[in-house]
Design a protein around this nucleic acid. Structure first.
Lengths: 168, 168
DNA sequence: ACCCCAAATTCATATTTTGAACTCAGCATA
DNA sequence: TATGCTGAGTTCAAAATATGAATTTGGGGT
């Protein structure tokens, strides 16, 4: 009756566990509001000032303000004071380590968008190795030997934090 | 005046290009509505029926219905007819290739959530290699030799589809 | 003919988002 | 001392979305 999941083997069935501590849900709780991931895209692209971000996004100023505050509260961005010569002190937004660690999420979105949304071979940006200039991409790798595996080799199993449902 | 982006080198500045064809924006346009990525999480976990999904998510039925239709229209899920013995024909939702390719996005969200949202070392699921059982993770790899690189080695440069802004 | 079930749809109420206008603080200029 | 400018917001009314409960739909089984 229960058919195997896309990412999974025969058993155990992931559906027999609680979703309350799901890390995807936890991440989406912070990142899932409208504009938030695009704000982060801009931060990764080096945009740090409110007005520049607002102009690029076209988001309502009130929303942008709200989102930046939420990201600050979550420890993803940090307000940093700066002063341009002959202007008063202001502040800009910078990614914290927790924020920079969102990198793979943005890269994954970019790669999927490049493959399925835009015209093929017309990506507006490329990711390259800083030293060699060789293209860089996201891949699933096996711990230990660091060998690449395909999505079909992947299996999801209950981890140390899995919470079984009563009455499966 | 322009400070270097987090992911980038000295120049060219990515902010001098249009954002209209941004693949992240394109992806978020489809995936960015409330519940959508959690629906996909469930589909990856093997949930295929409307009611089971609704019960797990706690989302309003109307929304879930709307989201599934949108994912179907986008070619990410497919309605497939099935019949359980002694019941009438129904249909279930399955990921298409385009949908399965969202895998890395979900894995990236999972990994970030595991690192920053949940209690350390208490991930509810582990990703393992189907054959060896070895842990699998997402990594940035260099094309050609397939060597892993760090986020600090990464640089974003304008690609073939980059559209310069007038009057930079 | 009547009941059950999965898969929705409807509808009234809440919450969010939008866009334009307004505020605020401090430097510059007169 | 007043006036203006600029970046970074806040306010507010209208529009769009989300919520949750109740209802509908289309078969099949008894």
């Amino acid at each position: 009756m229960r058919e195997p999941p896309v990412t999974g083997g025969r058993s155990p069935d992931l559906r027999d566990y609680e979703t309350s501590n799901c890390p995807v849900a936890g991440a989406m709780d912070i990142l899932g509001e409208k504009w938030t991931l695009l704000v982060l895209r801009d931060l990764f692209a080096g945009v740090r000032r409110f007005d520049e971000m607002q102009a690029r996004l076209g988001a309502p100023r009130a929303l942008l303000s709200k989102r930046l505050r939420r990201l600050e509260d979550a420890g993803i961005v940090q307000r940093v004071a700066y002063r341009e010569p002959g202007a008063r002190a202001r502040h800009e937004y910078r990614l914290t380590d927790k924020g920079k660690d969102l990198n793979t999420i943005l890269v994954a979105l970019k790669e999927w968008g490049d493959r399925w949304v835009n015209a093929p071979g017309r990506a507006p940006t490329d990711l390259v190795d800083r030293e060699t200039g060789a293209p860089v991409r996201l891949a699933l790798v096996r711990g230990g030997d660091g060998r690449e595996v395909t999505a079909r080799d992947l299996r999801m199993v209950p981890g140390p934090g899995a919470i079984p449902k009563r009455q499966a």
